[in-house]
Design a protein around this nucleic acid. Sequence first.
DNA 1: AGCTAACCCGAGCAAAGGCTCGGAACCACT
DNA 2: AGTGGTTCCGAGCCTTTGCTCGGGTTAGCT
Lengths: 206, 206
Amino acid sequence: MNQAVDLSLKKQPRQARSKVTVGAILEAAAQLLAREGYEAVSTNRVADVAGVSIGSLYEYFPNKQSIVAATLARTMREIVDEVSTGMHTALKLDQQPQPRAGIDYWMRAMTTALEQRGDLLRVALREVPFLWEIPEARDLHESLQRVAQEGQLRQRVIHFDDPEASTYLLMTMVWAAILQTVLYRPAQMSRERLISTLVDMVLKLL
Amino acid sequence: MNQAVDLSLKKQPRQARSKVTVGAILEAAAQLLAREGYEAVSTNRVADVAGVSIGSLYEYFPNKQSIVAATLARTMREIVDEVSTGMHTALKLDQQPQPRAGIDYWMRAMTTALEQRGDLLRVALREVPFLWEIPEARDLHESLQRVAQEGQLRQRVIHFDDPEASTYLLMTMVWAAILQTVLYRPAQMSRERLISTLVDMVLKLL
DNA sequence: AGCTAACCCGAGCAAAGGCTCGGAACCACT
DNA sequence: AGTGGTTCCGAGCCTTTGCTCGGGTTAGCT
């Protein structure tokens, strides 16, 4: 369906000014994606917005896809980091008497990470054809599932006939609910309402 | 971000042969979308696959977007129909002593509707920039929520502090879990495993 | 100062693809 | 058979856009 995406840089920036150039290109791509969507991203426009020439752009990036991919990879890496540490902290809190605190912390970490990148994520998820060929995007889902499995194994708190399947589904459902709600802001569903209701529901399932 | 999509036909097909033409165009667009993704859809290719000339295509459709939109609208309409009737049947079953039968029926209806259109839906959800400007796509989410609210009101079975929010989230979560699982087929998650686990979880929340 | 490698530039090439337009073929009805 | 509306056709116009290439500028080092 889609051939592999070339993520690697053509050339590593060595001097300081070239690192600035590459950074400006990534920043420009992120802005264009978030503001105007994937179809509005053309290599010439990215170069314009970044304030560099189209020639310089192609010194470092082999093609258009690689620019978008690098931009999204960076964002995904940030999210993976925030969410992973959030989840690990939450697991520690869960060892305490009140599991509610841990779940709550966890939901907040995920919500915050997504909220701060709403516009970019919305476009990435809806419009970028090769999103799931970016390793960092795959990793996000995998590490979500991995940490969920860890939590389940360590605590054996999910009481269903099929622990593996229910853990997978719980994680998928919670993540999807937050994603859906944060990115598409349905009427009357505030951040606090989302989190507290989700915590209630998760607790009832454990 | 995206300007409005023109969904209307330029001209209504009147004779039988022109209706065949329009049908062939929609069918060709659906096939190309499902098989090769949105970026592979060009007006000339749609005309080729449909076996009509590019000129004929533009007799009826004002632009490229409208072809894709019409194709997806038709698919969404089918899904809305199947899922809505499935949910209403499920609500009737729920009146019976065993709520499990109703929930199970409901999950099956949704899973089946999505499974049969997996390839097309995957592309639509991931790659088509203007998907949510197609009224039929919006309707799908709205009617899901509407029927969920109906069921909740009629039965008052969701016991949370915030019934409205929890109903919304339950529906969102279940739908997302099925979508995610059906479209991206994670390892070891068979149809039966998905449905039975989901039913367990939903019952525990009611 | 001189030299090399890194860096930057932007006019323009080439391909892709959305869409037009003038005219031919077909259908329905008298 | 004649007529007017409907349908079909496809070469090619024209815009967009990804990307190249030859040449200039700057940084770092001796």
